[in-house]
Design a protein around this nucleic acid. Structure first.
Length: 661
DNA sequence: TTACGTCCACTTTTT
DNA sequence: GTGGACGTAA
């Protein structure tokens, strides 16, 4: 592994805590891997090295590179996301954390539960109260930034006193409902862990945990939030922190990421040192010139200027279209042409701001038989038919998992919210899964009588619970049971049925049904990654957030236009606008050889909200990052206003001139 | 109580 | 294009 002077200095750093300020493409992961290799070479036990990342993708990449470049010794390095590490550790000390039997709530479960308590707090027909999505956001943000919920609401200054009272009630009911049902949500995983690390009366537990590690390597430090910082803080009395981050790539403020963890590293960490990396290995200079220009336009001072070792190359392209269909058609055509001249699909990547923007593109790709995968957005585990499957599996495991029971029961004709709740109420006094299954026939005949639905409900549970010995068998049985009912319910059934094959394969890797369910609640994307064998030549469609840390020879960034970069919703706040700028910066810096930006002049369709006219547009903000783009930085092409030769065959309308009247 | 039709608003990023 | 709110028939 070749390293430059700065990277070598970082990898071999002696002394205590270090922050490596690594700009895009400067070899961040390479440096972490080199650090791990160096430590192991110096005789550090790999089991005493902990590597933490923010996203699963980063974790996967880091683990892969450790294995391939450090060798077998790296296998025992503990590496994963903050969430996975927290869960794993808490599982390891069940008494200290009291988390024996629990179900992890994914985002949908959380919304469902919040929806339930929200309905309980509100009167009938009450309007204008924040939706469950918004409430989930508020609760989560307060947790991740370690602020009390009502304190946060007051600071936010968005809700009136009456609303705050009700929101607090929803929050408290949500918390107690979770406890009652042994649920933990994603935020709880971090919060429960951090809370124990900072509980003075449990310092023995903290010592025990912190004592396991000599070195903690942290990737994407700029994305850590206050709770994650507390976790690092709790681990660092003996362990040395080796953090890598780039403030210009901080794009998770919406999750409470606090890039002060990078900015104020020296103040937060006594004896901490900072070492910057400047040299970019990924992109050619014209691509970096554009990215540098974008950052320089910001009112914030990043003090970043990426220099390419690769030297000059092709100028980025900037292409404008009339509408999204033309944009999609052009991109697909361009992809095809490149493929015909020898470029592999896997060397091309299309970056989008949000998952829904791929709609036209996917249609065009399918039409042209181009293999692609989409990374980000709706996960396999969140699709309706898979949730049906998970519901029956979860119901079998836990009689207290009301969300699973509710979904399973409502799956049958004639059972809605009310009946399902009635049954769940009777179930929830029971403790063990065996009790629940034993009592259920009685409960069902009390509530819905002895009818077809009742018989089918029991049959399904029996099939999944009594015969199977392995998770694979259980999943297979559940699929067999659901199949005839779902086939009628979902129109595109064959496509959905294929997902089940994948789930059965995944289940094969697990010893227990519990571990199978837990793994894919925490890691739903892994399912989609498994479908892409490394060597297969496919095009990647990816959200910018998911793309951080990746690179591609050719990168298309689509819809670089007002309303998207910056995103409409972000326009009221200069901080959010600047985060949007960083998102675009991350997107641009993925490109190695060629960067192609496209934009659509979309006056119709999505309402584009032109800042200054709203009256709320902040000072120094912009609605279009590329409005003042200097011509010499890009090669422009306008595809708009070019009707095909066979359209519009009527008489020619004379061109409008301002002087005419 | 459930199921279904209609109207309306709104469309992010991840663990 | 989708999900939520609301009204209504069975």
């Amino acid at each position: 592994m070749e390293l430059n002077t700065d990277q070598t200095r970082a990898a071999r750093h002696e002394g205590s805590h270090l922050l490596v300020l690594a700009g895009a493409g400067t070899g961040k992961t390479r440096t972490i891997v080199a650090r791990a290799a160096h430590l192991i070479g110096e005789g550090v036990d790999p089991r005493r090295i902990l590597a933490l990342t923010f996203t699963r993708k980063a974790a996967g990449e880091l683990i892969g590179r450790l294995k391939s470049q450090v060798g077998p010794a790296a296998e025992t390095i503990r590496a994963g996301t903050f969430h996975a590490f927290s869960l794993h550790t808490m599982r390891h000390f069940p008494k200290a954390f009291g988390l024996d039997q629990m179900t992890i709530l994914d985002r949908d479960d959380q919304l469902e539960l919040i929806g339930m308590v929200r309905a309980g707090v509100l009167g009938k027909g009450e309007k204008g109260f924040p939706k469950r999505e918004r409430i989930a956001e508020l609760i989560s943000y307060a947790r991740n930034t370690n602020i009390g919920f009502d304190e946060y609401l007051k600071k936010l200054d968005e809700y009136r006193a009456g609303e705050i009272e009700k929101l607090k009630k929803v929050f408290l009911n949500y918390e107690s409902r979770k406890r009652l049902r042994n649920y933990v949500d994603y935020d709880d995983l971090l919060w429960l862990f951090a809370r124990t690390l900072h509980n003075e009366r449990m310092d023995d537990v903290r010592r025990m945990i912190a004592g396991q590690y000599d070195h903690v390597l942290v990737d994407e430090m700029q994305d850590t939030n206050p709770i994650q910082w507390l976790i690092l803080d709790g681990l660092r009395d003996d362990a040395k922190l080796f953090c890598v981050g780039d403030d210009a790539q901080s794009i998770y403020a919406f999750r409470g990421a606090d890039f002060e963890n990078v900015h104020s590293f020296r103040e937060r960490v006594q004896g901490g040192q900072i070492l910057p990396l400047h040299t970019n290995y990924r992109s050619t200079q014209p691509i970096l010139d554009l990215a540098n220009w974008l950052l320089a336009q910001s009112p914030l001072k990043y003090d970043k200027h990426l220099e390419s070792v690769r030297g000059s190359g092709k100028k980025p392209k900037m292409i404008e279209f009339d509408n999204a269909a033309e944009e999609a058609a052009w991109i697909v055509q361009d992809v095809i042409e490149r493929q015909e001249t020898g470029t592999k699909l896997k060397d091309m990547m299309i970056l989008v701001r949000a998952a829904w923007m791929t709609r036209e593109l996917e249609a065009a790709l399918i039409e042209n038989n181009i293999d692609y995968i989409f990374v980000g957005g709706t996960k396999l585990m969140q699709t309706a038919h898979v949730k049906d499957l998970l519901a029956i599996l979860r119901a079998v495991i836990s009689p207290r998992d009301e969300l699973a029971w509710s979904r399973y029961l409502r799956f049958f004709d004639g059972i809605g919210d009310v009946t399902a709740n009635r049954i769940i109420d009777k179930l929830s006094v029971l403790k063990s899964p065996g009790d629940a299954l034993g009592k259920l026939p009685e409960i069902l005949s009390e509530t819905i009588g002895k009818n077809d639905s009742a018989a089918t409900i029991l049959k399904g549970l029996d099939q999944v619970s009594s015969g199977p010995k392995t998770p694979e068998e259980a999943v297979t049985r559940a699929v067999e049971f659901l199949h005839p009912i779902q086939k009628k319910r979902y129109p595109n059934w064959p496509k959905r049925a294929r997902d089940y094959e994948l789930l059965i394969t995944l289940a094969r890797r697990h010893k227990s049904l519990e571990s199978f369910l837990e793994t894919y609640t925490l890691d739903p994307v892994a399912a989609t990654f498994d479908t892409k064998p490394e060597d297969k030549d496919v095009l990647t469609l990816i959200t910018v957030h998911s793309a951080k840390g990746t690179e591609s020879k050719i990168a298309y960034v689509i819809k670089v236009q007002p309303g998207i970069y910056p995103y409409n919703r972000a326009l009221a706040d200069i901080k959010e606008i600047e985060e949007e700028r960083r998102i675009l910066y991350v997107a641009m810096t993925r490109a190695m050889d060629e960067l192609i930006l496209t934009r659509v002049d979309e006056r119709s369709g999505m309402p584009v909200f032109f800042g200054s006219s709203s009256g709320r547009f902040p000072e120094g903000g912009t609605s279009d990052f590329l409005a003042d783009l200097p011509d010499e930085l890009v090669e422009r092409d306008i595809q708009a206003f070019r009707p095909s030769p066979f359209e519009d065959l009527g008489p020619i309308k004379p061109r409008f001139r301002p002087t005419d009247n």
